[in-house]
Simulated scan of single mutants.
Amino acid sequence: MTRHKIFNHDIMVCTHESVEGNYLYCSRVLGLTEPEDIIQLHPDLKSQWNVITEHYERIGLSYSKNVIWDVALRVLEDYPNYDVSLFFFGNATSKAGCDEDWFHQVDSDWLNVVKFINSKNNFIQLAQELGVSVPVTSYFENKTGIKDLSKFLYPCYFKAAISVNGVGIHRCENQQQLSEILKRFPDEIPLQIQEEIAASSFLNVQYYVEASKLQRLAITSQILDGCVHIGNCYPSKHQPWETVEPIAEWMVQRGMKEIFAFDVAVVEDATHGETRYLAIECNPRFNGASYPTGIAKKLNIPSWNCENFRTQYRSLEKLDLSDIEFNPQTNTGVVIVNWGTILVGKISILIAGGVQEQNELRTILKERL
């Protein structure tokens, strides 16, 4: 008998309060669901439901119509016969509304591997043990372990061992800047100091687990605004699966489930004509690239990019996508991914087609937003 899923992709258990409209991000998983599944959505999204489902119907994207308008994790306890799909498996903040005991009861192995690898310090140590290439990194249990700032390579990056959305990450041009950041940083929090990489690009390397087996999902090129991820492009000319696979296999052996991804820096040495790949961190959870990747797989889209846009509108009804909506016959057009955030003037849209078609569609789209 096939077990179906209940999806709760509320990011409030793993986000920073500075992210505008973060309580609305649960909407973006709708395109990954199937009709038999159940999805939990924030009640504020009810006003957009008819428009987004009509859009998905027109482009041929399947989705769950079984909605629970409540994102509380305690709801999951009422559906023991469903597999759970969560944005982050664990209680990463005090806002989860569900204690850690519940996660232990559901799957303690999964919880433990997520907690372990979610620490950037643990990730670096494990990578070094497994022979995975990483930037030169010094890690500390707390800032009292840092005695000599002159020993670090500058510029460098100061990172809290646990952070999301680039929060807690600072570029330090010199010793003085690092010293100033350390003065403001809490005494008890683990941290790391990492050399700056002259990267030509950064990759998102995604895996998923199926029947306890590791599966390759997709490698996309990241679109970044400083340290903050704002989009992804697929396919990528770089395919360095072997760079991080030892860590991915280690995680699955210890109980990792669902989707997880690695950030990998691409370093191109023009002098020797070589390309190196350095693992930066692992996100033991769904991430921004997971949602367009899943939708593109379902719609058989071979080439796409997905970006976050600002819009003047506060309702999907105002958007005019009439002649640029995704067409399954041509494999081109736009698909709304993160639709709930339009309530705060943001929207995430997948643009399908070749590079030239993507550029043309993006131009039209931005004029209409």
Rank of each mutant, 00 (worst) to 15 (best):
T2Y: 09
R3G: 06
H9G: 01
D10F: 01
D10T: 14
I11Q: 04
T15Q: 11
H16V: 07
V19I: 14
V19P: 00
E20M: 10
G21H: 06
Y25E: 08
Y25D: 07
C26W: 01
L32E: 09
T33H: 12
P35R: 09
D44E: 14
L45N: 08
S47D: 10
N50G: 08
Y56P: 13
Y56R: 04
E57Q: 15
I59G: 13
V67G: 08
D70V: 09
A72W: 00
R74G: 06
D78A: 11
P80R: 03
N81L: 09
D83T: 11
D83I: 06
F87G: 08
F88E: 00
N91D: 06
A92F: 11
S94E: 06
G97K: 01
D99Y: 02
D101K: 06
W102S: 05
F103H: 04
Q105I: 11
V106W: 15
V106C: 12
V106L: 15
S108G: 04
S108T: 12
S108F: 11
L111W: 03
L111V: 13
F123R: 01
E129V: 12
L130D: 10
G131H: 10
V134D: 05
S138A: 13
S138Q: 07
F140C: 06
K143D: 05
L153D: 06
L153Q: 09
P155R: 04
F158L: 10
K159R: 10
N165A: 11
V167R: 05
G168P: 11
I169Q: 14
H170M: 03
C172V: 09
C172N: 10
Q175M: 13
Q176K: 15
L178A: 11
L182W: 07
F185V: 09
P186M: 09
P186W: 02
D187C: 09
P190D: 14
Q192M: 15
E196V: 07
I197Q: 13
A198S: 14
A199M: 10
S201M: 08
S201F: 02
S201N: 08
F202E: 13
Y207E: 05
Y208N: 01
K213P: 00
A218T: 10
A218N: 11
Q222D: 02
G226R: 04
V228C: 02
G231A: 03
N232H: 08
P240Q: 02
T243L: 11
P246I: 06
A248S: 12
E249P: 01
W250E: 05
E258Y: 04
F260Y: 07
A265E: 07
V266E: 01
V267Q: 12
E268W: 05
T271Q: 14
R276F: 10
R276V: 12
E281I: 08
G294L: 00
K298Q: 08
L299E: 05
N300T: 02
P302I: 11
W304S: 03
W304I: 05
E307M: 04
N308Y: 03
N308V: 12
T311C: 07
R314S: 08
L316F: 10
L316Q: 04
K318A: 15
L319W: 15
E325H: 04
F326W: 01
N327R: 05
Q329E: 14
I336W: 09
I336V: 15
I336L: 09
N338T: 06
W339L: 03
G340S: 01
K346Y: 11
I347K: 00
G353K: 00
G353L: 01
V355Q: 10
L361V: 05
R362I: 08
R362N: 14
T363S: 11
I364D: 13
I364Y: 09
R368V: 14
L369S: 12
